[in-house]
Design a binder for these strands. Structure first.
Lengths: 230, 230
DNA sequence: ATGCATTTTTGCCTAGCATGCAAAATGTGG
DNA sequence: CCACATTTTGCATGCTAGGCAAAAATGCAT
């Protein structure tokens, strides 16, 4: 226990704050150590020690060691989902998705350093990148449901009652289109981020992001001249 | 290093054959046991015993226990890549990709049982599904390169010599478009397979596949009436 | 403040994963 | 049959993961 100093701040219970602090300390220690020595050579013991807790405690916060490197923001998915539902009714599904994701990623360029560190750690070991993908995969289904709701509620009835029977059917077997849209959207963001990171700060993320979604909206035609940038 | 002749002509040697047999026995035992008891409860020891080798030998064939469940076809990526390059010159990049992938997946409905078993094992534990995704992710880059080559060679010169300088640049930083196309294509296939598996044999895979790529080519517009199927 | 209930941390223990190393077993070629 | 190369195997080691119960920390009511 290193941080016994700061205790008096208001807000919620001390327990909650301590828990969040411990979790943050663990992730930060994990990422920092991984950036220095390579993720593969960072043991749970080292992370725990750097965070000032016992190795056993680590597993009270993460199901697996790798999660400490990957788990960045658990509520990101929920925010994007809300963004899709709250997007202006005039937008097409793809546009709504674009806007929701753009809003979520707006802070990327601000918290640029953290993301860069994370990106370097992840890309250094494909193993972790896969795990990161898996995390996003979990959100994908929820996103597809949100898109389904946006389509079902439709532009006609803003807050109309949804048929109760078809609701359950929707959960059981989502439509192909929203599933595809959610999956492709997530993939597009991934490619945009990777491409942006690869070109070390030589172009703004916003531009890459916009370009990717233009490609999608155009039906992925062969780029001729104008759209042709690396 | 006494190379009398080419000794790696085929599986002629007894050694090679035995190795392939052992690997096949391991994967089969792994999948079979996983389908029965759940992948999480299948130990390396159990797999090895079922395959008739020592536990230590298992790790001579796989880097990790989970690989035994996932490693299905290592040359699939290479085939798709070739398919993209050999596709008729008249096709658009997206169409070329669609054809290459369709050719690769043609055998899916034939080897239907094997795929179903694998699919059930994978979907039962998201952990493995992620690993499977990672495997496909590795192919994605190669696929992007193939698409780049198809674009670069272009419809003008069928087999023209590639500039040596730009070749290396291409490897270093691929264009955004082929990267996006490769990633989105892979994702589309994944969604198609998942959707097909979810609707237990109620529709032909070919139809789902075609529909998904129609969505992509149309720029993912909101489906109205005609395209609206689950 | 004190005592009690709840939650969190911690140490201990077990099972399993993964790898290096060297000896034994097995296939290969002369 | 004899060297040679490759593969398998046992052994030893370190790390991951989680169950369990004791101990510490915290919240709450009195």
């Amino acid at each position: 226990m290193q941080n016994v100093v700061e205790k008096k701040a208001a807000g919620s219970g001390l327990r909650e704050r301590k828990k969040r602090a411990t979790r943050a300390a663990l992730t930060e220690a994990a990422v920092r150590l991984a950036a220095e020595h390579g993720a593969e050579h960072v043991t749970v013991e080292a992370i725990s020690e750097a965070a000032g807790v016992s190795p056993r405690t680590f597993f009270n916060y993460f199901d697996a060691r790798d999660d400490a490197f990957v788990m960045v923001d658990a509520e990101s998915g929920a925010r994007v989902r809300r963004g899709v539902l709250e997007a202006p009714a005039g937008l097409s599904p793809l546009e709504a998705l674009r806007e929701a994701m753009a809003a979520e990623l707006a802070e990327i360029e601000q918290r640029h350093e953290v993301w860069d560190l994370h990106a370097r750690v992840l890309s250094a070991s494909p193993h972790l990148l896969a795990r990161s993908l898996a995390a996003h995969l979990a959100d994908e289904l929820g996103l597809a449901e949100a898109l389904t709701e946006r389509l079902g509620g439709g532009p006609a009835t803003a807050a109309g009652p949804v048929p109760s029977a078809s609701e359950k059917e929707r959960r059981r077997a989502l439509d192909l289109y929203p599933r595809l849209l959610a999956a492709v959207g997530g993939t597009a963001v991934r490619v945009a981020v990777e491409h942006w990171c690869a070109q070390q700060d030589r172009l703004a993320f916003t531009d890459v992001f916009r370009q990717v979604f233009e490609h999608l909206a155009a039906g992925l035609p062969a780029p001729s001249g104008e759209n042709r940038r690396r």
